[in-house]
Structure formats: C-alpha cells, structure tokens
C-alpha cells in the first residue's frame, strides 16, 4: 500500500453569498500517494480550485465556508489547525502555484528576495544563506543565478512561472499543488514548464496535484487522474485506466469532444447542455440531465463511488457488472 501524502475525506465547501449558497465542493474524497502526480480534471466551475485552496485552508472567508471534511497532510488534519500552525505548513509541507504568472509576483521585491522569503519564513534566520539558497533554486528551474536581483517586470511570463515554481519548491514541500500552471502561457513555453514539473517531481520526490481542464497536459504528465463535475469526483484511476478504459459518461463525453486529427471533416461532438448552476444543484446525479445513458433513477439519488480495483466511478450504471460505455464497446 503506497504511503499517502494527502488524504481528503468528505470535503464540503460552500460560498455563502447574498444571491444564494454556491455549493462548490460536495463530498469530495481522494488521496495522493508519495511521488505521485494526480491530475484533477474538470471544466471551469467544477470546484477544482476551491478543493485545492482548501488544502491550504486559503478559501476566501467570507464568503467561503468549509462545511465539513478532513484533510490529512502528514498525519495532521489541516482543517483543525490554528492560523499560526497553518502558516508553518503553507510553503513548507505543501505549496501551491497559480494560473497567471504575470500577476503572481510582488512587483517591488526582487525575485531572489521572494524566493528567500519563503526560506526565511520556514526556519532559516540568516538572510545571506537564504539568498544563496534562492539562487540555487533559480538554477534548478533553469534561470541564471545572476538574475536573482531582477524584478518581476524584467522577466517574461514563462520565466515568471519558473520563479513561482522556485518559490513553491524552495522548502522542499512534500506536496505541490499546481492550479492550471500553463493555461496562461504560450504552447511552446507550456511544454517547457511541464518538462520542468516532471523533472522536479523526479528529482525531489514531490507529489503533485495538477489541476487542469486540458486533457493533453494530463496525458503528458500525470500518473493518476481524478475527474470532477459539479463539485464531485465522478471518476478516479490511473492515467491508463481513465484514458484507455474510461468509465464515467462525462469523461467519455470529454474525450469525444476533443477534435480528432484522424476524423477531420466530421462534426465536433460537444456534450449537450450545460453544467448545472452550483447554487441550484439537482437532487440526483448532477450529470444525469446531460447523460446519454441516464435512467429515471439517476435523477433521484446521488451515486456513490463504485470500485473496480484501483479505478473508481460514481455512476449507478455500474451496479450492473456488464455495463460498458460506447467508447469501450467499440474499442
């Protein structure tokens, strides 16, 4: 049994606004093992970022409220920690990088200082030593150490994202959360950053939670994949299982809607309908209204996760052991 760095159980997060209650995360449970890269996939609004912020307990409050759940990191439930203990955990045991590198860095501090800040927040008292280590980190992410005195505005988007990664990894966290780290970058830079992430995972044994809506990125980098829809995990398994032996109808829909170079000239196949409004989630399975396999029972109860070995799926169709998606039937 692989040792788990992170275990999330029954996480429920709501945003309580004037217009209503946004049920962003609804009973999410998953875990990440040592050295594993888990891709968290889903459309915008599925609850991926909120889940990630919960791990650091950084959900903006107000209006966000963590209603229920436990997040075990290194044997401690992060959600029970007081603020000062949380600050020790953030940046050191778990680090997070965000989507837009252009605005993620403080414009009036040098990149060296910003990396060193993380180091000094977690034990290093000597500023000189921290700055030296910061320069080392810059080298690790492919930036010349001589640039540690530069300011963010002197760097391109791709380089800024590398600095962000350097800051995140400066204290050697056991878990790195990357929220759409390449979405805002050019495709060529994207490839470089992904390579960097893979390399760092190998070098430092860091586990990663990689949030993305891009299945291509997942295929490139991830060991395991979890698919989120309307605040719930609908499928979870290894990359091979999810890509080649897809179980959930939503995941099938995602793959079908990708343009296929071999099928040029054919119509694109989008998933009918839209993701439900998180302020007004339906009673039963949230995907049922759009699901080509749905039966009336689906709209009555929320399906539990059903196990097929290491592959989990939240779809009552699998109560029948013989059920197969069209995608898998055709091969």
């Amino acid at each position: 049994m692989k040792e788990n760095i992170l275990e999330i159980k029954d996480l429920v997060v709501h945003y309580e606004t004037d217009e209503g209650c946004v049920r962003a995360v609804n009973n999410v449970s998953f875990s990440i093992g040592k050295k594993t890269i888990l891709g968290l996939v889903g459309e915008t609004g599925a609850g991926k970022t909120t889940t990630a912020l919960s791990i650091l307990n950084l959900v903006p409050n107000p209006p966000g409220v963590i209603k229920n759940g436990s997040i075990i990191l290194n044997g401690v439930d992060v959600l029970t920690l007081p603020e000062n203990k949380l600050q020790e955990v953030r940046g050191k045991d778990v680090a997070m990088i965000f989507q837009d590198p252009m605005t993620a860095l403080n414009p009036v501090m040098t990149i060296g200082e910003q990396i060193a800040e993380s180091i000094m927040l977690h034990g290093e008292k000597d500023k000189e030593k921290a700055l030296a280590r910061a320069k080392e980190m810059l080298e690790h992410v492919g930036i010349a150490a001589s640039r540690s005195g530069d300011y963010p505005h002197q760097l391109s988007g791709g380089m800024r994202q590398r600095v962000v990664i350097a800051i995140a990894l400066a204290c050697n966290p056991r878990l790195l959360i990357a929220d759409e780290p390449t979405t805002a970058l050019d495709v060529t830079i994207q490839a470089q950053i992904l390579e960097l992430i893979k390399e760092l995972n190998r070098k430092f044994d860091t586990s990663m939670l990689l949030i993305t809506h891009d299945l291509g990125v997942v295929a490139e980098v991830c060991d395991e994949v979890a698919v989120m829809y309307a605040g719930r995990i609908v499928e979870w398994g290894t990359a091979d299982e999810v890509f080649n032996h897809t179980l959930h109808p939503y995941t099938e829909g995602l793959f079908n809607s990708l343009p296929n170079l071999r099928k040029r000239g054919e119509d694109l196949v989008p998933i009918k309908g839209m993701m439900p409004d998180p302020m007004n989630l339906p009673e039963g399975c949230a995907f049922a209204p759009r699901c080509p396999y749905a039966v009336p029972q689906c709209e009555k109860e929320v399906p539990e996760l059903i196990k097929r070995g290491t592959h989990l799926v939240a779809c009552r169709a699998y109560e029948d052991g013989n059920f197969k998606l069209r995608r898998n039937s055709n091969g």
Partner: peptide
C-alpha cells in the same frame, strides 16, 4: 485583490506581513 497577495499567503507569511510588506 492582487494575485501576489495570495502567493504570499500560500508561502505561509503571516497576515500582518502580507498586508504591509506585500
């Protein structure tokens, strides 16, 4: 509202430090 405030918090900086230094 700026993103770099969030980056600072994710580093584990105290709220006071985030407000003043960043």
């Amino acid at each position: 509202r700026q993103d770099y405030m969030r980056t600072a918090r994710a580093k584990g900086a105290s709220e006071r430090r985030v407000i003043y230094k960043h």
